[in-house]
Nucleic acid binder design. Sequence first.
DNA 1: CTGAAAGCGCTTACAG
DNA 2: CTGAAAGCGCTTACAG
Lengths: 353, 353
Amino acid sequence: MASIKDVAAAAGLSVATVSRVLNDHPSVSADARTRVLAAVETLGYRPNAVARSLRTDQTRTLGLVISDVLNPYFTALARSVEEEARSLGYSVIIGNADERPDLQDHHVRTLLDRRIDGLLVSPTDGGSPLMLDAARAGTPMVFVDRWIPGVDVPVVRSDGRAAVRDLVAHLHGLGHRRLAIIAGPAATTTGRERVEAFREALGAYGLDLPAGYVGQGDFQTESGRRVTEGFLALPEPPEVVFAADNLMALGALDAIRARGMRVPDDIGLAAFDDIPWFVHTDPPVTAISQPTGELGRAAVRALVDRVEGRAGASVTLPARLVVRRSCGENPGAPASPVPRPPEPPSPVRRSTS
Amino acid sequence: MASIKDVAAAAGLSVATVSRVLNDHPSVSADARTRVLAAVETLGYRPNAVARSLRTDQTRTLGLVISDVLNPYFTALARSVEEEARSLGYSVIIGNADERPDLQDHHVRTLLDRRIDGLLVSPTDGGSPLMLDAARAGTPMVFVDRWIPGVDVPVVRSDGRAAVRDLVAHLHGLGHRRLAIIAGPAATTTGRERVEAFREALGAYGLDLPAGYVGQGDFQTESGRRVTEGFLALPEPPEVVFAADNLMALGALDAIRARGMRVPDDIGLAAFDDIPWFVHTDPPVTAISQPTGELGRAAVRALVDRVEGRAGASVTLPARLVVRRSCGENPGAPASPVPRPPEPPSPVRRSTS
DNA sequence: CTGAAAGCGCTTACAG
DNA sequence: CTGAAAGCGCTTACAG
């Protein structure tokens, strides 16, 4: 593969001049420019990004460590991250943690070794030493969706509390009282928050969330199946199951079907995260929808701000409830506006971290 | 960030010795080793992969350019690719072409600039000059799922012809005669092949595939919707629509629902690519399932073979039909074995390219 | 406007 | 077993 030396030789100029042409440096004569460009063309020369990175100490690459590529939510997030990054002149390298802290650390380490300019993480746990070190060492970093408390890193996420209250209002209005949740890992912020928001919303209606109605999942399909089987085996099973993400909802559907039961007749189902397939499932699934594309773009902007020496702000966007038929709504009725829960929803916050 | 010089200074040795320790070179004294390791530990030193790559001319990185990250098939493929690569000591950088040849070229170029050791591509078109050049220039390359004819590059894919024949036999047995297809882009091999296989299979039953029953899609949701609307507006709409991938099947479901029609009562639906959600759609969707994980692993093995100077073989694995209820099967009956079509299925081929 | 030279952080023959 | 030195392909003050 042709190097800058070959181009210089072909153009009859020094490598310094070739480099200046390639980098649009102002002080280059028109003549030199055309000769260099011609040589580049005939040799099919492409600058070696590795060498450039070593010299400039920047890779124009962002690392993205997502919790699970098989989760359509993260896939959509990854897509918008890549788009926004590309428009800002950055590439992105994706690492899939598969909800495993060890794999997450593997990817963070690899990304750091490659000297990416910045790191976008949706942490699968409460913060490994490696992650904490990276944050402290000053690696430009931003958390998306999930975050690690106590670390001085901007977080871009959506707040689902108001939507969870809307969901509980919807369920309560339908007459449901025994409500259960398939929770995500307690080591993750979203894992904890969704349970807490659910519990609080229930409390506003004087309802309890007994321990037996909180199933511990891991955001992946299999755990949704297992937890739901447990719920169904209870002497008094819940009337509705709320899955804290879409994959666990898939597992719940599997378990319900395996028991020969029907949604919503035998048991209701709702999910955090909306995906295109929920429109076509049997029945369509009531879900809480996040502004995923906007989250991805905001996260990249915050990270690039940090990379380029600007502040980089935290962003919180609201999620919203999308009512479908999986909790037993009157099938004929058009989707009605959900009655507001007792407390007002928290406003969108855009705070500088 | 600490460099190898800092480690050498801290250990009281030369950088050469430090490098040898780090690379497990045999001729290092036990004493030197322990001193280096201690220095590495206290400094928290991590080798700079960029510098190493420049020097060794290898990045231990594979590039993967997939057609569409929002397509669960490619997402599953990407996952198995990353797993296998990791187990062989390689990282993978994913580029999303979003079914756009220009974006595909952008990613190929970026990946080449970064001097990845090998390239895995599922081409979105018939071969841009860039792609052709890369293949000819000797960049280790392997095609997955889709390929470019006439280029000397191994291809790892699945052969759906037998499964398509099984599908047509299934539909014919159910009494359907007017069968339509939502095709992928003619510039892609899978786009062409699935139509051809469908047409051939119909021919074996004396059935025709009229031009009006071949809708041109692009493997993305919106095109499935548009094409299906066209089918439904026909004076004589088809009895069954076969979508050449899962996203176009999603679009078809959207269109059918928008018309207020029901599957399979008003129209049947089948899809190429099976995904977990097809079990829970209304009704469950009959689909052709590819051995996606195995394809990803085989592709990586072939590519790493090429990278490391071995041959690297093409692999073709069979796809299989999974019958569900979306084409109108007797709902009560257990999934029955599909009657064999006239011709025997082509055997699995493992040819060295 | 242009070029010679230093240097980014590594690895690896070559001597000893 | 160890070290001094060259060199991977670039960029960028520093001179001129």
